[in-house]
Structures are given as C-alpha cells and as structure tokens.
Simulated scan of single mutants.
Amino acid sequence: MIFGNKGRERFLEAVADFETAVRAQDPEGAQRAHQELYRRFQDAGERELAQAGPRLAALLPEVPPGPDGAVAVAVGACVERGADPAVCAPYVLDGLAGTLAGVERFCDRWAQTGGGEFPDPDAEPDPGLHDRVGPEAAMAWLTLPQWEMASVAMLNHAAVRTALDAGRRAGLLRTLRAVEEASGHDFKCLTYALLVLDDEPLVVLHRPTGTGYAMRMSGLGDNFQLHTLLADVLVGGGHLPGRAPSAEEAAVCRDRPGQVHTTGSFNLVTSTGEWVWNEGTPSDIPVVDGARLLVLDPPPYERSWPAGRFFPHMTGDLRLERVLGADEAGRLLAGCVTKEG
C-alpha cells in the first residue's frame, strides 16, 4: 500500500481516470478506474476526499444502473470523511428517487410474474431475475440498500435535511413505504432519516405537576433519544422531580460516541391519550395549534435501554426555550385526554 502525498495524488488520479472513462462511455475503463479508486481510498486525506466527493457525485447521472449504487456509497464515504454534504446530496437524493421509482416497477413486475418471496439484495442474484422483471427494475431492487446507505450519510447532516423540499421528502417517504409494504423488506434507517425533524417546536406538558415547557428539537433519530434528553433538560435542569440521566447518558444522545444504559423517567403520550412509543420517532407526536404537543405521565413500569443515537453520525439537540405560565399550561392540559390502562 502506498502512503503519504504520492498515495493521495494517485487517489485523485484514479478519480480523474474514472471521470474520463464514464464520460467516454468506456465500461471496461470505468471498472478498472473504479477498482483503483477503491484501492486508493484509505490512503486519501481530507483535502483529497473533499475534492473527490463532489466530483463523484456529479458523475452519478452518467453512471449506468448497477455501478451507480457503488459510486453513491463512495460519495457517502467521502462525506463521512469530510466532503461537503450539501454539494453532494442533491445528486445522491436524485439517484435515490430514481432508484425508488425503479423499485416500484420491480414490485409491480414481481407480482405480475407470479410473486413469491422477494430476492435478498445482498445475496448472489438469480441469473433469471433480469429476464423476469427487466434489467433496470432488477438493478434498482439490487442497489437500493446501497442508495439507502449513501442517502443516510447525506441526511446525517442538518444542512441537507433542512434544504430538502418538504414535498419531495414526503414523496420519498410515500414511495419507500409502498415498497416496504409490497416487498416485506425493512428500510428502517432510510425511513427514520427522512423523518428527522430540525428546529422543530415541541410543547411538553407534565401532567402530575401541571407544568408546561416550550422546547425545540433537532436531529433526534428516535424517541429513545428524545426521552433521555427530556429527562436531562427537565429533571436534570431542576424543573421536574424524578431521576435525571447522568452527564454521559445525555452526552451520547447529543454528540458523544457510544451508548450508556439509562432508565426512563416518563410515559410519553399524545394530547388524545395514545402512547408515543420509544421505538418510534418524534414525528409521531401530533401537531396541535402549530406545535407538536407531548404529555408526560408517570411511567407505568420501569423501562431501560441503551441511551445513544439511532444515527451515530447525526448530532441531536433538545433545548428549553421557556417555561409556560400556569394559566397557559393549565389551559393546554385541560384539553388533553387521560386514557386508563
């Protein structure tokens, strides 16, 4: 293996060779350059990766179906090591949208040709798959896990999530859920990444004390993370009684690597009394009068879990903006339902 500046220069040379071969529609040359690019990747420094990520992303529309998934993964790897996600993301998310459309055709064609258990995208592909559903639909299905990986690498960054048009995000989620329903395959990471909320108002009411809190959340991948941070801000901040998470339990839910065992402090419910499960996402909390409204009840039994982040590369945040006045909190709580059992 080659190290140092020479190795880094050869990585960018491999990127340039790959660009040339793709644009010349030279599949054999592109395959050789792609292999060399991967061989040199580990030797590349931050500066080289910062240059390579956008260049490879810009190539994605020209790379044929199949190899494009591997290139998207390479773009994601560049972003994870310092390339600009805001520059790379539009190409990756365009590719994801096209792949999901292809997977919808795959699901339709699969059902029309006899159905049965869907093929495992990670297994050796059936030689007859292309004939059964068509080559582009087959490639879309087989490369969707790669596009999921690359897209999550983009969506780990708040700049990408906040720039994503709400209508497009909703469209990607609709298609993804239709694919999951038709195929029985779980693309949970991508679904959860598309559901992440940023700079989102959250009104929290604590039923036992009759108090309320205006909060704001960003980058929370699931409700385990939200639950831990609620206890950190409200119990740890001296606003509510109960068990406060340790500093380490809170830190791993914000930006510190790893997981730490924690115990739940509340039962999370909606204003209409339905439980908000820790296994779900903050997007499950309904909007009431312009803000998501969450009620905290005493936990019906002890629950514990590994505190941390569903997306280890995504920074999470929950902050208290103001404590509601007693009249405001009382009015809001009066409109909330208590369900027994």
Rank of each mutant, 00 (worst) to 15 (best):
G7S: 08
A24S: 15
V203K: 09
L195E: 14
V75D: 00
E62W: 02
D84T: 13
L293T: 13
V92R: 01
F3N: 10
F118R: 09
G219C: 06
L293V: 08
V276T: 08
L194H: 01
T228C: 12
T175K: 14
D198K: 11
L195Q: 14
L197G: 05
P286W: 06
P119I: 01
A158D: 11
G184M: 08
R309Y: 04
A291I: 06
G114H: 07
F311S: 03
R32Q: 14
P127H: 13
Y192G: 07
Y192A: 13
R161D: 00
A214W: 03
R32T: 15
L195S: 11
G95H: 04
F118I: 14
M215I: 06
P241G: 15
G98C: 07
R109T: 14
G29L: 05
P65A: 14
A250M: 06
K188C: 13
L173R: 09
D131W: 10
L320G: 03
N223S: 09
G236W: 05
E321W: 08
V79N: 00
A153T: 06
A33W: 03
A77I: 01
P300S: 11
A101C: 05
D289A: 14
C78K: 10
A140I: 03
V87Y: 00
G128E: 15
H130G: 12
R319M: 01
T211G: 11
H239K: 13
T191A: 14
R168L: 00
A52W: 05
G53E: 04
V92D: 00
L37V: 05
R309W: 04
L190D: 00
F187D: 02
L173G: 00
A21R: 02
L234Q: 08
N5Y: 09
T143I: 01
G242W: 05
M215H: 11
A182K: 12
G167A: 09
L59S: 06
A74D: 09
L190T: 00
S183P: 08
R256E: 08
V71A: 13
D232N: 09
G273C: 12
G134P: 01
V152P: 00
P145S: 04
L129W: 08
C189D: 14
V160M: 02
A24R: 15
D186A: 11
G308K: 01
G76L: 01
V288G: 02
L59R: 05
D222N: 15
T270S: 14
H185N: 12
A50Y: 03
R319D: 02
V152D: 01
Y213G: 06
A89F: 05
A44F: 02
D165S: 11
Q225W: 10
E124N: 10
V269S: 13
G82K: 11
G7F: 04
G325P: 00
